[in-house]
């Protein structure tokens, strides 16, 4: 059992319905876009008074 045991369980539970595919792909895209945006915008994203 590790941090990602849910993922491992989902790998075993094929076949996956299309809506589940779409949801998981959308989640990946959102996470990647946010990571890309913040890693590029850097300090400009944040209020400089912190």
């Amino acid at each position: 059992m590790t941090d990602q045991s849910d993922n491992a369980a989902s790998v075993r539970s094929e076949p996956m319905p299309p809506w589940r595919w779409a949801y998981r792909l959308l989640r990946v895209v959102v996470m990647l876009l946010m990571a890309y945006w913040l890693s590029n915008s850097g300090d400009a994203f944040f209020y400089q008074g912190f």
């Binding site: 790998v11 595919w21 998981r24 989640r27 990946v28 996470m31 990647l32 990571a35 913040l38």
Partner: peptide, 17 residues
């Protein structure tokens, strides 16, 4: 393959967000 991509995306989200 999707679960591998999810792990990478999750890692990047955890680190950079």
């Amino acid at each position: 393959a999707l679960s591998g991509v999810e792990r990478i995306a999750l890692g990047l989200f955890k680190k950079f967000v």
